[in-house]
Design a protein around this nucleic acid. Structure first.
Lengths: 195, 195
DNA sequence: GTCTATATATGGATAGAC
DNA sequence: GTCTATCCATATATAGAC
């Protein structure tokens, strides 16, 4: 039926849904290559679809990543939302939001299981942190050493999350969110401000 | 107790070295029960030796832990050494020491591989962090919320270590130690001081 | 009810006998 | 090198005071 040369258009007839095929290919590519190493073109090719379809279904590479891991929230989008509300008091607001998402079982549980498996897939998280979180924060805060300061924010948040939700170290694990915000929020703010 | 009443003394005659037997038992117990859950009495019993021998060979539970994981340094001892030099500028000194140990391949490599496997053994690290690091820092700094502030120090250090040595996130992974000390040292100091 | 005191158990560390 | 005995710190339980 399909003409030789040009790709055919219209719905696939092999019974495989394109969206599912892309997700399957993405999981494989992300696992093998890490977030940065995997390319949308390679994923599309492996799924047997056109690259444009990936953007059509998932909006962005980070959106595809989030859905491929079945994560409940997209950290990149969450950061953009916070930044859109201005940079004032960003440290506390950022931390408050982080604790909200991770404390809520419905959203936190998948994140914890994702983080648990990170040690075996360091490339995956490194790429995501670098290109989706650190560079986003860097652009927003500016100033000298913006990249290093943005990365410092990530180290503090990562360490808190790891201690509270994965290791469950006391008294961090059962501290009230407000206590943690009061103690650690200013740290994030200091990194953001560049003191 | 042995059936005859008193335990026998003198060297073992079963050819198994007591030290090795203790190490083997310790690895098993630590893995199953975590650091806090494992008891020196249980380890000694499993090894078929008296409890006192464990202290004799390894000095302390944390010493046994360190040797059972073949770690190059004992963090608890390292902290005590730093504290013995006073609490002045402790944040920077602590961070400087951490970076020295982890940056040096001979000492850092075993630590990294240990940290990689932590996700599958959260009890192990939780117990060690709580009873060997956080409580030590807590006693040294005192003041209100000393325990939470000590724990905050651990979250920042842990996040930095995880980002720099396990995930190798840039620009944290290739930043100069002095840069990191200048940026993050004050954070540790703030937690220690209680602001 | 909450708070304090004392009892009891557990577990780590040390000194000294053998 | 190995074991006995003991000490000390911590955690849990119970009883009585207020």
């Amino acid at each position: 039926m399909s003409a030789a040369g040009a790709k055919r258009r219209g719905p696939r007839r092999d019974g495989v849904q394109a969206k599912e095929a892309i997700l399957a290919a993405a999981r494989e590519q992300f696992a093998e290559q890490g977030f940065e190493g995997a390319t949308m073109r390679a994923i599309a090719a492996a799924a047997g679809v056109d690259v444009a379809l990936v953007s059509y279904y998932f909006g962005s590479k980070s959106g595809l990543f989030v859905e491929s891991l079945r994560l409940p929230v997209n950290p990149a989008v969450a950061i953009d939302t916070l930044l859109a509300e201005g940079t004032e008091d960003l440290g506390r607001r950022l931390l408050t939001r982080i604790l909200q998402v991770w404390d809520e079982p419905a959203t936190g549980a998948p994140l914890v299981s994702m983080l648990r498996s990170v040690s075996s897939q360091p490339d995956l998280m490194r790429g995501f942190l670098e290109t989706e979180l650190i560079s986003r924060l860097e652009r927003a805060i500016g100033g000298p050493d913006a990249e290093l300061r943005a990365a410092a924010v990530v180290t503090q948040a990562l360490g808190l999350i790891f201690a509270r939700y994965v290791l469950r170290v006391e008294p961090v694990a059962s501290a009230a969110p407000e206590e943690l915000v009061a103690l650690i929020g200013p740290t994030l703010q200091r990194y953001l401000d560049g003191v």
